[in-house]
Amino acid sequence: MRRRIPIIITFIVGTALIMAMFIPHTPFSSLDENLSVYFDIIAVFAFILGGGNLLRVHLEKIQKKKRDWQFSIVTVVGFLFMLIIGFFKVGGPPGLSGDFLAEGSWFRFMFEAVFNPLQATMFSLLAFFVASAAYRAFRAKTKEATILLIAAFIILVGRTPIGHYFTSWLPKQLDFLHVPTLASWIMGWPNTAGQRAIMIGIALGVIATSLRIILGIERPYLGAEK
């Protein structure tokens, strides 16, 4: 029974949502919207579960002085500090309903002075990793790899202002060989064709997976198969 009820709920809700695509009448019309709101509400409550888990795991690590337990102190202190200054709007407008990002609030200061640079730093790692991955992966080992290499080359040059100067001397009749034009062509045609093919496959995969879930063949929300 513990398994059957969730499967029945999944089937009913899944089928109703599919029907809602074709029936604009109430109650179907607002089903998608209302369920999205319910999802958000559940997600908010689930956050307590996540936050609780984070605290439990790291406090245990500190208590038992497990490997790298010092990092856990940073995590716990950081988590509680941000939670408190955000919740109580420290330094911001009085009252709990004000804007937590208001000018002068501690939360805003932490957001701009700590969170912003940390995020930008993590994202900027991409520039370094793109270089090392390109150096390792773009080798003309096969015919396919050579085509990939040439395409990468054109895009890399074409997506910079240098690409414009590189072939700007070409006569107008040969404009199609201009590097930025070639880069745009690769992005607009072969890339789009490939993307569309992958997207069609993905869409069909999503439909098949969704049907498996609705029909109860696949039920990860219950914890693996029967």
């Binding site: 793109v130 270089a131 390109a134 150096y135 390792r136 773009f138 990468a152 080359f153 890399l156 910079t160």
Partner: peptide
Amino acid sequence: PQAIAHLVIIIFIIIGN
């Protein structure tokens, strides 16, 4: 800087090949 960084990547790809 992005253009120069792209050039460095291109040089590395050429060296690698």
